[in-house]
């Protein structure tokens, strides 16, 4: 390579190197170091695994972690279940203009901030909210009911937030299914359930995996929805990270928590990719 060309390449690579180096790699090295630092005296730190030990010793921490993981899996499964019939409808039943309008309508709410959507659910579900008041008016309940600040509200908010990221990859995957394959399935005497199970779902698998990975990742990393809809009962692991970093100013502990969350999220992403045999690039482009 000639000198000027080498210089040109160097210049072209500089933004990427600065970005990935200063904003991604070095910051993660920093929290990796912090997470294995123990405070032995004021402003004096030494290597040690006390922060990770603390996580396993203190029930609140590991229980919140396990709860976050389990609820995120539930949310992902529920999102898939709710989104699949709609994606199937958009991809297979709707035609022409109706199809593109339905698809666009699906995207619309997600151009709006997560906080606006959460505010909507709060107004609908609180004790003095729209649902409680309406139910009283039609006489189904006698006094106000509080629908917020429980696990159901948190799951609802998280499922709602994940829908788009499930519908889009599902529609993309189902769109490429050849209708004659489905017809052949019926012609050979397959029932609706059999065709769905043996033809449609296997074909949609790449989309299902892509959607599940993205929804799980966003759910595990969510902060505002569990805090606002769950209140004190939200207990989400990101909240623990926030409180260690910002409220208690215990950065080593917060970094250890951050690494544990990163490990959980990366394990699921990696496992999902292995399961489907797709690359990260393919999967992200689906969404």
């Amino acid at each position: 390579m000639s000198e000027p060309r080498r210089f040109g390449l160097f210049l072209l690579l500089a933004p990427a190197a600065l970005w990935l180096g200063l904003l991604v790699i070095l910051p993660h090295v920093e929290i990796a170091i912090l997470s294995v630092s123990e405070r032995i005296a004021p402003r004096v730190y030494a290597f040690g695994l006390a922060n990770y030990r603390e996580f396993f010793v203190e029930p609140l921490y590991w229980r919140t972690f396990a709860r976050t993981a389990v609820m995120s899996i539930m949310v992902t499964a529920l999102t898939l279940l709710l989104a699949f019939p709609v994606a199937l409808y958009i991809a297979r039943a709707a035609r022409g203009r109706a199809k593109s309008i339905l698809f666009l309508l699906c995207l619309l709410p997600f151009w709006v901030s997560e906080l606006v959507r959460t505010l909507g659910w709060m107004i609908l579900m609180r004790e003095t909210g729209v649902i409680s008041t309406s139910l009283q008016k039609i006489g189904l309940i006698s006094g106000p009911i509080e629908l917020l600040y429980n696990d159901g509200a948190v799951v609802l908010g998280l499922v709602y937030g994940g829908l788009l990221f499930m519908v889009v990859p599902l529609v993309n995957a189902l769109d490429s299914l050849d209708p004659s394959l489905v017809e052949a399935g019926y012609d050979l005497g397959g029932s609706r359930a059999t065709v769905l199970r043996r033809i449609v779902i296997p074909h949609a698998m790449p989309g299902i995996v892509a959607g599940c990975i993205v929804v799980f990742m966003l759910t595990v990393g969510n902060f505002a929805t569990p805090v606002l809809l769950g209140g004190k009962n939200g207990l989400w692991f990101t909240e623990q990270i926030y409180s260690q970093f910002i409220t208690r100013f215990n950065w080593p502990q917060g970094s250890a928590f951050g690494f544990l969350l990163l490990a959980l999220s990366s394990a699921i992403v990696w496992g999902g990719l292995k399961l489907s045999g797709q690359s990260l690039g393919q999967t992200l482009r689906q969404g």
């Binding site: 920093e30 990393g221 970094s255 951050g258 999220s265 990366s266 992403v269």
Partner: peptide, 10 residues
Amino acid sequence: VIPGVILGIS
């Protein structure tokens, strides 16, 4: 694929 909270704290 890195949770936003972790990008922030790092």
